[in-house]
Simulated assay, not measured.
Amino acid sequence: MKIEEKVIACLYETSLFRGIDKPGIQNMINCLNPRIHYYKKNENIAMSGDPFHGIGIVIEGEAVIAKENIAGNRAILTVLKQGDMFGEMISFTEKKVWPVTVTAQSDSEVIFISPEKIITRCEKMCDSHQILIQNMLKIMSKKALILSRKVDYLSIRSLRGRLCAYLIEQWKLQETPVFSLPMNRDELADFFNVARPSISRELSKMKDEGYIDFHKSAFKIIDFEAMKKEI
């Protein structure tokens, strides 16, 4: 199976194929037998409750993972960008249905790989497949830690405290004085399960009080100690 060069180049940059060169990825394609799908902006890539058919990797575009609670309120769990993978946490469960909805935020290209193809050694028993399996285990462990971090957010009672924790986390991740947020105001509101005006109002108050400075999606932490006390 011949895959476009851009797909191989994208997979080469992902955590799943880390340590495997491009020729090695192309050789593995025959064993993995992936499927490529194209989606228009706002089109659902996967719907909550639908059968699960494979782990997805975003090749082009952006997508959001969201979940609705019993009351029907939508909460964004994460934003997917080029090279990001989704579905791996449910790929080995007994009940293989999507627990979330994945929606294209822009025109997108997604490649799907069967999880069984990843963990089953191919007939060639190549070293690259062993690396692939190890990478998969590392990714799932990392995702488990991220889920634990989200529980930490829920333990913070105030919206300001959650915003402070989120901003500090992004600042540390990006290791730069001026950093950008991966989510816009609407997505942040869904993420924290509040109304959008509440996010904008609280951020403006924090700016006026000298906690932070920002312009659009670019942020800078001014008073780190004061923010820590809010958490």
Rank of each mutant, 00 (worst) to 15 (best):
N44Q: 09
N73F: 05
D127H: 02
I139R: 00
Q130L: 15
I59T: 04
F112V: 12
I70G: 08
I168Y: 10
T120V: 11
E202G: 07
A226P: 07
I55T: 04
S180N: 12
A195C: 05
Q26F: 01
F86P: 10
E62A: 09
M28T: 02
R201M: 01
I212Y: 02
G87V: 09
M85Y: 15
F52N: 11
S217I: 09
E88R: 06
E5W: 11
R121K: 06
S114A: 14
I29C: 05
Y211E: 00
R18Y: 03
C31K: 03
Q134W: 13
G24A: 02
V97Q: 15
F52K: 13
C126Q: 01
M85C: 15
R162D: 03
V97D: 14
I57Q: 07
R162K: 07
A75Y: 01
P115T: 02
N33S: 06
L188V: 11
D190V: 04
K220P: 03
I20L: 00
I212A: 00
R35L: 08
K22R: 08
K143D: 13
K205Y: 04
D223N: 04
F52A: 11
G54I: 00
N42F: 13
S158I: 08
E62L: 09
T176K: 14
Q130H: 15
E60R: 02
K81F: 15
V102G: 04
K142Q: 03
R149Y: 12
H53Q: 12
R149E: 06
E109I: 14
H53G: 06
L11P: 01
F224R: 13
W171A: 10
S141Y: 11
I168G: 09
Y153I: 06
V97L: 14
E169Y: 06
S217N: 13
A144W: 13
R196G: 10
I70A: 10
K124L: 05
R196N: 03
I70K: 05
L167Q: 01
Q82E: 10
M136V: 12
K41H: 15
Y153F: 10
D50E: 03
M183V: 11
T78A: 15
E5L: 12
P34V: 00
P177A: 15
D186R: 02
C31D: 03
K150Q: 09
E68K: 08
L11C: 01
I118R: 04
K207H: 07
E109N: 14
K216M: 13
I65Y: 07
I133L: 07
L137R: 02
E88K: 00
I133E: 01
S204H: 00
R201Y: 05
S128C: 00
R157T: 11
I156H: 05
R35N: 03
K138S: 07
V100Q: 03
I36M: 01
R162Y: 04
F112G: 10
Y166R: 14
R157I: 12
N42Y: 12
T101G: 14
K81R: 15
Y211W: 13
P177D: 14
L188M: 14
I8N: 13
I133H: 07
K216P: 01
A226L: 13
M47G: 06
F214M: 10
